[in-house]
Amino acid sequence: MTDTMILDRLNAVKPAEERGAPLLEISHLRKEYDGVPALRDISLRIDKQEVVVVLGPSGCGKSTLLRCMNGLERIQAGEILLDGGVLTTEKTDWRLIRQKIGMVFQSYELFPHMTVLENILLGPLKVQKRKRKEAETAARVLLERVGLYEKRTAFPRQLSGGQKQRAAIIRALVMEPEIMLFDEITAALDPEMVREVLDVMLELARSRMTMVIVTHEMQFAKAAADRIVFMDEGEVVEDSPPGDFFVKPKTERARRFLNIFQF
């Protein structure tokens, strides 16, 4: 495969006709920790190319929900479907599923003993068994896109928080997932670095990557989201377009939550 073909593939904006077809469907999901419910009865549908931002107070279960979506948490009841296939059976091979679901964590979790490039290539080479040359080209294209190509031989400890998080995003993107999950990925960053990471997510949103974003960045949520899912106490309380949610929230709980961010 030539560089330009890889470039085209990675930069391709997905065709609009795919829009609106369900990609991830969750029905009646229940998750408990030692009998204490964390998610009570969650039903949620994420369509292809949709950007869904999950908001809610701490401990409302939004991170848990994200972690259930790629099998990091066992669920007690309910069903998760990806592209129509049920994920939550005993036979589910999460290794295959997780290649289609990229995840980025608040604490970066780059592998500290590997350079940026080694971090990024581990999945493509060892999991997907791709050719080194092709994977390296893909990594280069993506690194250049987020302005980190010069840092490819650096170790994580030599990077700023923002750079680490951008590298972690690329590590997930290089697998060419169908959907990306972001778990409060700017929460541990210094304010001046938040922007560079949000910009990368905004750009992804524009290339119509399907994304589920857990965040406390309200301005970003307004700008990037197609839909806001507001959670409280393990339930989805509101599910509406950002215009509606921020301007006239339907529930008292959402109003109280939004008021916290007013000065």
Partner: peptide, 21 residues
């Protein structure tokens, strides 16, 4: 840390790959 293992899992590494790499 648990996070290292989870980030390895989320790029699809198997248990033995997780140990090795």
């Amino acid at each position: 840390g648990r996070g290292q293992i989870e980030s390895g899992l989320s790029i699809g590494l198997s248990r033995s790959q997780l140990v090795r790499y």
